[in-house]
C-alpha cells in the first residue's frame, strides 16, 4: 500500500445490515478510529476503501458495482459479516453474491455476525501494515 494512502484512509460503507452500527461505533470516544487517520466519507470519488456488508438483492448489487466503478484508481474492498461471506441469511437469490465475488477482487474478509468493533480496527491495522 502506498504511504500516502496509508496515513489518510477514506472509507465508504455500503449496505443495510446490522454490521453498520458496529462499524460506526468505532467513531466513538472509546475506540476512536481517527487516531490512525481513518475517515468515513459519503461520496464514491473520495473513497479509497469500499466496505460491503448486509443484505443485497439484484438492484443492490448493480448499485454497489456502480459505486466501485466510480472510485478512483488505487482502490480496495473489505467484506464484513457472514451475509456477504456466505449467502443471504434469509435465503433470497443466493447466487448473486458469488457473481459479485467473481467480478471484483475482495482484499480482506472479516467473519462474525456482527463482528465486534475491535475486529474492524484490527482489520484496518493489518491491512495498512501497522499491526
Amino acid at each position: 500500500m502506498p504511504s500516502l494512502a496509508r496515513s489518510n484512509l477514506n472509507i465508504l460503507v455500503a449496505g443495510l445490515g446490522c454490521c453498520k452500527q458496529e462499524i460506526f461505533a468505532t467513531q466513538g470516544a472509546l475506540y476512536d478510529i481517527q487516531r490512525f487517520g481513518v475517515n468515513f466519507v459519503s461520496t464514491a470519488e473520495d473513497a479509497d476503501i469500499l466496505v460491503i456488508q448486509g443484505f443485497y438483492n439484484k438492484k443492490g448489487i448493480t448499485r454497489v458495482l456502480n459505486i466501485y466503478d466510480r472510485m478512483s484508481s488505487p482502490k480496495w474492498i473489505i467484506a464484513v459479516g457472514s451475509c456477504v461471506l456466505n449467502e443471504n441469511l434469509f435465503k433470497l437469490e443466493s447466487k448473486l453474491l458469488s457473481q459479485l465475488r467473481n467480478k471484483v477482487a475482495i482484499n480482506m474478509y472479516i467473519p462474525g455476525c456482527p463482528p465486534r468493533p475491535e475486529a474492524f480496527i484490527y482489520a484496518i491495522l493489518r491491512f495498512s501494515g501497522r499491526d
Binding site: 443495510l16 443484505f55 443485497y56 443492490g60 448499485r63 441469511l89 433470497l92
Partner: peptide, 29 residues
C-alpha cells in the same frame, strides 16, 4: 424496492431454535 431482501417462505423447514437464533435481525437496533 432496494430493501426487499427476505425470501418468501424462509421459515419453512426451520426448527424453532433456529428461528429464535435468526429472528433478532428483524429489529437490529
Amino acid at each position: 424496492d432496494i430493501s426487499r431482501v427476505v425470501g418468501n417462505h424462509y421459515y419453512k423447514g426451520l426448527e424453532i431454535y433456529d428461528l429464535i437464533a435468526y429472528i433478532s435481525r428483524f429489529d437490529w437496533k
